[in-house]
Structure formats: C-alpha cells, structure tokens
Design a protein around this nucleic acid. Structure first.
Length: 823
RNA sequence: GCCCGGAUGGCGGAAUCGGUAGACGCGGAGGCCUCAAAAGCCUCUGCCCGCAAGGGCGUGCGGGUUCGAGUCCCGCUCCGGGCACCA
C-alpha cells in the first residue's frame, strides 16, 4: 500500500539514534527514582517470532512509559544461551555450539532492534559467557557449603531422546519429556540436587503478597502441594518390635481402615512378605520397576495385577483390629512414608482396589440423603462420624483434630505436613551448559574445585557425535585432573547444570554486569531489586518462576546478596500465547509468520500497534486470515496520524476558543486520563482504541467550518503524539521532531497530564426508563438534581404517552444518568 | 476427578461501581472523487416485523435477587489451561 512516509527510513533513523545516543542506557547512580522493567530473557533460536514481538512490544511500552514518568528505567536484555538445540545442531552439522548460538543471538538481536525495542545493551548477559559461568560455579560452591546443594543416589527421570536426566518439573503429566516427547524412564543415578524443599513453606506463603496473576499463584501452590494430616505407626501382628509408619490426610477415617498398603520399593517389603506370597509380591515389584507411568495407569491399570497380599497383617491402633497388608504400586515411595492405611469407604482409589481384591469396607462418615454412590462407592465429603468409637457424632474437621490429639497423647503418631515439591535435580549429562565445578578423588570423594581455579570451562577440542554421551565424558584433557586436597589423580564431574540455574539469577547480574570480584554488587542489586515489572509467557509459571524465587532466597542466605528483598519479582505480567490453527505458533510446528516480512511492508510501528490492540494482552491470540487486514488497518491509522500532523493546508485561527473548541479540549483531556488508566491496568487494546477516537475527532476538527483554534489543535496533536510515543515510537519521534524542530525528542518529554475539570463531560445523556425499558434520552448537565431529573423525565412526551394520565407507583432517580418510572 | 479461566454482532473485542449492551477495529453495503482504478473521504451496518413512524427480541442454558442483571446468587452445558494414583 502507498504510504504517507518512508517507513523503513524513518524506523531505521530512530533506531540508530536511540543506539548512538545511548538513550536507554542507565547508570546505577542515576538520581531519578529507579524502575526495573524486565522481559524474560529469551532462548536464542533465531530471528524473533510473533510471540517475541508481542512480549517485547509490551516490555518496550513500559520502558518508554516509565521513562516519560521521570523514572530511571533499567531495561536490560540478555540471552539464555545454553541448551540442547545448539548441541543437537552441533551433532548434526559439526558446528561448535558457541558458533551456532552466537549466530542465533545476532539474528534475534537484530530483529528486536528492528522492532524498536530499546535496551541498555552494555548490560547484556549471556549464559555461556565465561564470566557468567564463573559466578554460576561460585554460587554452586556456596550452596554446597551451606548444605543447599548435595549429591545423592536417587531414582531419576531419564529422557532417552535428550540423553539426559530431567527435573520433575520437566516431565509432563503423561510421563513424557516436555522437550522431546519421549517416554521418560526411571533410573537410579548419583546426581546433584538443590535443596529447594528447605524453603517450601516460605515459597508457599510468599505468594500471598505478590502482584501476580492469581492463575500463576494457584499453579505454584498446586505444584508445592501442601497437605496436612498425621503420621502414625501400625504394629505388625505377632511382631511387636516391627511397625509400619503411614501418612494420611484423613486421620478421622482411621476406624474405617480395612487393609494397609506399602509401595513396591518400600524397604520393609522383603521382611513383611511371607514365603507363600513371595511370588505374587515379586511380580508386583517387577512390574512396578519395568513399566512406565503410562503403561501402569493406562486402561484403568488392571488393579488386580497392580497389588498383592504380603501375608502379613498390621494392627489398627484405633480399634486394635488386625488388617491385611498389601503391596501395591498405587502407593508411591517418594511421597509421605511410602505406606498408607486404606479406607475404601472414604477414598476412591482404596475403593477401587478393595473392589478388585474382594476387601471389605466400613463407612465412618454418614453420606447425605440422596447420595447414591454410583460409579465409586467412596464418600469423600463432610458428614457425621459413625462406626468410629470416640469420634462418633463429630463432623470431619473436628474428628481430624480429635484423632490427631488421640495419637499424640499416646505417642503413637504426630501431626504432619507433607509437600508434593521435591528437591531440584540440576545435573544434566550434556555438553552445552555450565560445568559443575567438582572433582572426584579416589581418596577424598567429591571435592569442590577451589574458587581460585574457576571457571571450569568446557574444552573446545571436542567432537560432537550422535552417541548420546556428552563429549565432556570422553574428552581426556578435560576429564583428568588432580585432587585439590591431595594432588593425586582425579576425574572431573562431567555433568553440566540445568539451564534453569542460569535463568535463576540473571536478573541480579543485570543490576551489575560489570562486576569482576563477585557475581554482582549487593548494593547495586538492592538499588534495583525487586523487579518492578516482569513480563513473560505463562509457560514459565512453575519452573523458572519457582526456581528464581528459591535461588534469590538462597543467595541471600549464603551471604551473596545481603539486604536483597526475598521476592525477586514484585509484579508479574504473563501475556497470552499466539496460536495458529489451534496450536502454539512455533518453529517446530512450521507455522511461523515472520515479523521481518512486516518490518518491510507495514513497518514495526504498525506491527506493534497490532499486537497491542488485537486482543487483551493476557489473552491468547489466534493468528487468523484477518491478521493481515488488521495490520494494514494499523498502518492506515499511522498514515492518518501523519496527515493530521503534516497537513499544510489547514487554516487555523488564533484567539479564544469557543464552545465547539472546548468540546475538543475536553476530549483531549479525557483521552489522556483514559489512556493513562488503561496502560496502568494492562488494557493496551482499549488504550489504542481511545487514541483512535481522539485522532478521528482531531481530523474532523482540523477541517471544521471556520477553522480550528490553533492552540486547541496544537494541544490535541501534541497530546496524541505523547500518548502514542510508547506504542509507536518511530513515527511519533519523527512527527514530534517535525513539529518541534531538530533535536526535539518525544520520548524525553513528560507523560501528559490532564485537567480533571476539563476531563469531565459538559453534558450527559439522562436515560428515561419505564418499567426498566429505555423510552427516552435527554441531554442534561452532569450537575442535574434528582428533582430536576425527575421533572425532565415526566415532561418527556414519550413518557406522558405511556403514563396515559396516571402516576408512576415508584420513581427511581439516579442523577445524572437515569430515571426509572415504575407503573 | 480437583483447581483456575472463559462464553457478548459475520469476526477480534468494549462496557472500571448493578444503571444507554455492542466503544474501537476488521469485514460488508451504498455514495463522493476519478476517463478509470488505487488511495482517500462521507453514510449505513446486532436480529426480526414495518414503506415509515415505531415496535419486539437480544450478552451459552435454566432458575433467583432487584425498580433495573452481560455484571450479583443458585443449578447446568460447552470450550481453554494447570494438576492428577500425592494417601
């Protein structure tokens, strides 16, 4: 389409100027109030896609908006540059991951620059920078010293596709890898963990005060999975010295226990299995070890095969009754005590298992009248306790408390809180990540690499082969070293850290990326932190955001960040994702619509406006056929803005504004108020709509009979340019310079303020309803009194017709908006 | 199964406190300009009845509260997301 201005030239000109003049560089001793605006640093996968454009348009708007509010805005960007795609590319093409990654970073940087997004590039942090690796490793050693990092043999999630271990958080609900989609296997391996569980209660409670989307907070609470209950011992029948500890959230149902279950991996299984049951128990254990989660849970899981009687019985301490002890894979070793009391009448899983194994049930809660128990006979709701001895007659909540008291009085059990959250497994059997700074000595075991010898860097002379083994594990030069303790021969740890470790503190490095003696100067971090506005995709709701909250606390507690606030991200905004044909728009799906195409045609400003105005920022956006037409509409809007500002045939008049001019002024001031409020509440799409309304009105006013009043037109034009400056930065900068002369910078101006008196309407529409239906509309003053409003309504000819001489039974008057006459 | 969202014209969406439903945009129709087209400009555009004036209906479904409900309450349906043998 033919444009009113040379889009490419104008956008390039301003991008160059912002870069050359360092417009958005900010120093740590800047006297203005600090504001930290941060978009999640991206994995460099190549040129920006529409999801990036959306994310960084929102972020850039905030940077420019807060700058116009007089803040010193910290706007850094870096790249989450370690990760598997680069390593896979190396295996495929023979290119070193560093070379590959740096080429992708250059592409992404270029396309974000062309979007007009501005950053203090001096502060750029990339994960694979040796300086960043250095401090990553220092932090690891400090965590180790503090007991927050440890090594343990543990059943881990092994992804055969990625040839590495995964964190629990990286395994999807169906047991597959979130990256490769392969079915994750179980393996027992010696791995490094971070003790995130030490902070579990704080991580849970801290959520309450955060200005985060409720949805994200709910997801984190859910993931942490706190549940309250009791732990107590079941003595094995005939063996008073031996007992089994169980955890339950329903101690009130203890009288309904008709059997008990241990996990197949439970250490007491062997001892509790009687010879005649050995074969059946072994079969359950074999299946549990061999089958994946999917196989086990598929098709209802053939419950009769998933458990077996051990031959032992355990005694219910509440009533002294012995009940059979089963082994079954529906009880997990990794949660609670790995053993449960089973109450079929009040637990659905126990009900199903009891049914499959012909076990009885005893109800301990009276189900309500009309409850038919069809489907599953377990009743899990509230009700009056029955068949429960001293608990009878209580409700569930009271009975829980009483049951725990009873256990504690007798020393049989205790109140207990359990969490779903496990420690964070950080070892990865990959090359392109931060090496774990540990050496294994035959005499001294795992020994930390002395800080003076850091960083431990991966060698460059490695071969990338599709063997599934990290090149580090076979590189002799890297592998062999000496023990820091005894000087004897030793081997290096060849695992690297999960890349989520890198992203757990990059926002702190941004505060002071120039620091050489420490990860960051705590004073600088305290100056900028917490992040005032964090922006990113909701897909990071659990992993990254939970890890970063943990890491910030850990860094404070090991003394690396004294004085830092414990919550790193005060305000979080999660933008919706971009979908196409019902799925996420992504490279792997092959449905990318490249932003570069639009930079050439409609321009970055038009593309930005599109992303700001198309849908509410939190909503997912469907990229449909309509997108191109809407983007053209955004370009048309910018052309109309050009015509407003650059029109050379307008005959404006000087002198006092009359009433029609004042009406325009009122629109201007009202628009300033509306747009400001909308930006503060993340309603960018309505902010754009209000700017469009103002432009429409100004264009009409410009051609008004008798000519517009010059001051009013100028005021409106300037206000509009200022309001649009964070949204369409290139064109507003160009037009501002056109109007105010060379050197004038729209982004250096203060955000426009409005006159509250002018922002009010001069007149409002009084709606007259009869029996709740709108029958007339009358223009009135906003100050109209109730009596006046009622009189005006009754005087309406339409109302008179409906009244037909009668009087209303009731009159509701809400001046100045509404009168409702009830007949 | 549990926990969060959501459902408004042909489409994206607006309605911040219970008070004009449909702002703004896309698409569509008609007109102006033009030799013609593009661009631009103007008017109309929820549905139904009506020549019109006007009237009726209308925010997923069924109830309720209220002078008045897209908005609040109760009960559903469908869609999206998260969690899921977590005892």
């Amino acid at each position: 389409m033919a444009r009113e201005y040379d889009v490419a030239a104008v956008e390039r000109k301003w991008q160059d100027r912002w870069r050359d003049e360092g417009t958005y560089e900010v120093s740590n001793d800047d006297p203005r109030p600090p504001f930290y605006a941060l978009c999640m640093y991206p994995y460099p996968s190549g040129p920006a896609h529409q999801g990036h454009v959306r994310n960084y348009t929102f972020g850039d708007l905030i940077v420019r908006y807060q700058t116009m509010h007089g803040k010193a805005v910290l706007s850094p960007l870096g790249f989450d540059s370690f990760g598997l795609p680069a390593e896979n590319a190396a295996i495929r093409t023979g290119t070193h991951p560093r070379v590959f990654t740096e080429a992708r970073i250059a592409e992404l940087k270029e396309s974000l620059t062309r979007l007009g997004a501005v950053y203090d590039w001096r502060r750029e942090v990339v994960s694979h920078d040796p300086a960043y690796i250095h401090w990553n490793q220092v932090i690891f050693l400090r965590l180790l010293e503090a007991g927050l990092a440890y090594r343990a043999l543990a059943p881990v999630n092994w992804c055969p596709g990625c040839q590495t271990v995964l964190a629990n958080e990286q395994v999807l609900a169906d047991g597959t890898c979130e990256r490769s989609g392969d079915v994750v296997e179980k393996r027992d391996l010696e791995q490094w963990f971070f003790r995130i569980t030490a902070y579990v209660e704080e991580l849970l409670l801290g959520l309450d005060d955060l200005e985060w989307p409720e949805r994200v907070k709910a997801m984190q609470r859910n993931w942490i999975g706190r549940s309250e209950g009791a732990e107590f011992d079941l003595v094995v029948e005939g063996r008073p010295e031996l007992s089994l500890r169980v955890f339950t959230t329903r101690p009130d149902t203890s009288f309904g226990m008709t059997y008990a279950v241990v996990a197949p991996e439970h250490p007491l299984v062997d001892e509790l299995t009687r010879p005649e049951q050995r074969a059946a128990v072994d079969e359950v254990r074999r299946r549990a070890a061999a089958e994946t989660e999917i196989e086990r849970t598929a098709e209802g899981g053939a419950l009769d095969k998933r458990g077996a009687y051990t031959g032992s019985r355990v005694v219910n301490p509440f009533n002294g009754e012995p009940v059979p002890l089963y082994v079954a894979d529906y009880v997990l070793m990794g949660y609670g005590t790995g053993a449960i009391m089973a109450v079929p009448a009040e637990d659905e899983r126990d009900w199903d298992f009891a049914l499959a194994h012909g076990l009885p049930y005893v109800r301990t809660v009276e189900p309500p009248d009309g409850w038919d128990g069809s489907g599953n006979g377990a009743y899990t709701g509230d009700g009056v306790k029955i068949n429960s001895g001293f608990l009878d007659g209580l409700d569930v909540v009271a009975a829980k408390a009483r049951a725990i008291e009873w256990l504690e009085e007798r020393g049989i059990g205790v109140r207990k809180v359990n969490y779903r959250l496990r420690d964070w497994l950080v070892s990865r059997q990959r090359f392109w990540g931060c090496p774990i700074p540990i050496v294994y000595c035959p005499g001294h075991g795992a020994v930390p690499v002395p800080e003076a010898d850091l960083p431990v860097l991966a060698p460059d002379d490695v071969e990338f082969l599709p063997t599934g083994r990290s090149p580090l594990a076979t590189n002799e030069g890297f592998l062999h070293t000496t023990c820091p303790v005894c000087g004897g021969p030793a081997q290096r740890e060849t695992d690297t850290m999960d890349t989520f470790v890198d992203s757990s503190w990059y926002f702190l490095r941004f505060c002071d990326p120039f620091s050489t003696g420490m990860p960051f100067d705590p004073a600088a971090a305290v100056h900028w932190m917490p992040v005032d506005q964090y922006i990113g995709g909701v897909e990071h709701a659990i992993l990254h955001l939970l890890y970063a909250r943990f890491y910030t606390r850990a860094l404070i507690d090991v003394g690396l960040a004294p004085g830092l606030p414990r919550e790193p991200f005060r305000r979080l905004f999660t933008q919706g994702m971009i979908r196409m044909d019902g799925t996420k728009m992504s490279k792997s799906k092959g449905n990318l619509i490249a932003p570069a195409d639009y930079y050439e045609s409609a321009g970055a400003d038009a593309l930005r406006l599109f992303h700001l105005s198309a849908v509410p920022p939190t909503d997912d956006m469907d990229w449909t056929d309509q997108a191109d037409e809407v983007i053209d509409g955004c370009a048309r809007f910018l052309d109309r803005l050009c015509r407003l500002v650059a029109a050379d045939d307008v005959v404006a008049r000087d002198g006092e504004p009359g009433e029609p001019d004042m009406a325009v002024r009122r629109t201007v001031h009202r628009t300033i108020r509306l747009v400001t409020v909308d930006i503060e509440r993340w309603s960018y799409h309505t902010a754009v709509a209000h700017c469009r309304e103002l432009l429409n009105e100004l264009l009409v006013y410009q051609r008004v009979d008798g000519g517009p009043c010059r001051d009013v037109l100028d005021e409106g034009r300037d206000a509009l340019l200022l309001l649009l400056a964070p949204m369409a930065p290139h064109l507003t900068a160009e037009l501002w310079e056109l109007v105010h002369g060379p050197g004038a910078a729209v982004h250096a101006q203060a955000w426009p303020s409005f006159d509250p008196a002018l922002a009010e309407e001069a007149s409002v529409i009084l709606v007259v309803q009869v029996n709740g239906k709108v029958r007339d509309r009358i223009e009135v003053s906003p100050e109209v009194s109730a009596a006046e409003a009622e009189a005006l309504a009754l005087a309406s000819p339409k109302v008179a017709e409906l009244l037909d001489g009668g009087t209303p039974k009731r009159v509701v008057v809400r001046p100045p908006r509404l009168v409702n006459l009830v007949l």
